[in-house]
Amino acid sequence: MTIEPSRPLVPQWAAPISVRIGNGHSELIHGPDEALYYFRHRWPLTDSLALDTARRRCLEARGFDIPCETAKDAVIAAAIEAKILA
Rank of each mutant, 00 (worst) to 15 (best):
P8F: 03
A14Q: 06
S26F: 01
T46L: 15
V10Q: 11
R42M: 10
R57W: 01
P16E: 06
S48Q: 13
H30M: 12
A50S: 12
P16N: 10
V19N: 05
S18R: 14
Y37Q: 04
D33E: 07
P44Q: 08
Q12P: 00
P44I: 07
W43M: 01
T46W: 12
W43C: 00
P8E: 03
A35Y: 12
R57T: 01
A54F: 08
A35W: 15
A54R: 11
R56I: 12
P5Q: 05
A50M: 06
G31P: 02
L45I: 05
R57M: 07
D33A: 14
L9E: 09
G22Y: 02
P8W: 02
S6I: 13
L36N: 09
A35K: 11
S18I: 13
S48H: 12
L36Q: 10
Y38I: 00
T53V: 03
L36W: 08
I21T: 12
E34L: 09
V19H: 07
R20K: 14
A14G: 02
P44N: 10
P32G: 13
R20M: 08
P32H: 14
A14R: 12
R56A: 13
D33H: 13
R57N: 00
Q12W: 02
L45W: 02
S18A: 12
R7W: 07
D52A: 15
